[in-house]
Amino acid sequence: MLALYIRDVKLGIRAGGGALVGVLFFLAVIAVAPFAIGPDANLLARIGPAMLWIGALLASLLGLDRLFQVDREDGSLDLLILGSSRHMLPLTVFVKCLAHWTASVLPLVVAAPVLGLLMNMSPLATFATALTLLAGTPAIVFIGAAGAAVAVSLPRGGLLVSVLVLPLVIPVLIFGVSASYAASTQPDPFLPPFLMLCALMLFFAVIGPLAAAVALKGASD
């Protein structure tokens, strides 16, 4: 299992800088916002956490469709499924998700505080947002894995995966953004939405890989 994790992280970093493209997309989305909304610093600070969340959400959906498709194209998916008698397939999927998160999504979380600066957010709000991203983005990857598995045999699954997954991650977005706001606006407590976010992440960590494993078994041909 560790071998699979290391292999996938290596591939994520080596194969044409997939991680860099994700961060770049994140940067570009955030950079476009002030052009659309106007450079009003107060307004930007107010919508900052929401913008960061939307940017991170879209950027982490970006490479998700390739999660299993690459393995399917070169035949390694057969290897993973055939190995399922030793390593439970959901666990294999879980490890693949973790590797994908480490290589492609963790850089987004690291970049978030810098972008918070550009959105004129207060340090407290920035770090609260980064923290919620740290807790919330794995949920996106886990549930996205289910979408990627469903669409694995489709030739142009990319957009479809995003369409399938976006409605499912709305709860994550709700609690992530409300926790980020709660940290900076005084009367709202930070902890309840944040704990809900963590609970969602753990819930998806179970449901996502299970669903993905079932879909992968059915999709192999």
Binding site: R7, R14, A15, G75
Partner: peptide, 20 residues
């Protein structure tokens, strides 16, 4: 298909197979 990753070295591919 050969179930090998073109971006990894031959030894890395084989080592992964054995470990997995």
């Amino acid at each position: 298909q050969n179930a090998m990753k073109p971006a990894l070295t031959v030894a890395e591919n084989l080592d992964f197979r054995r470990d997995f």
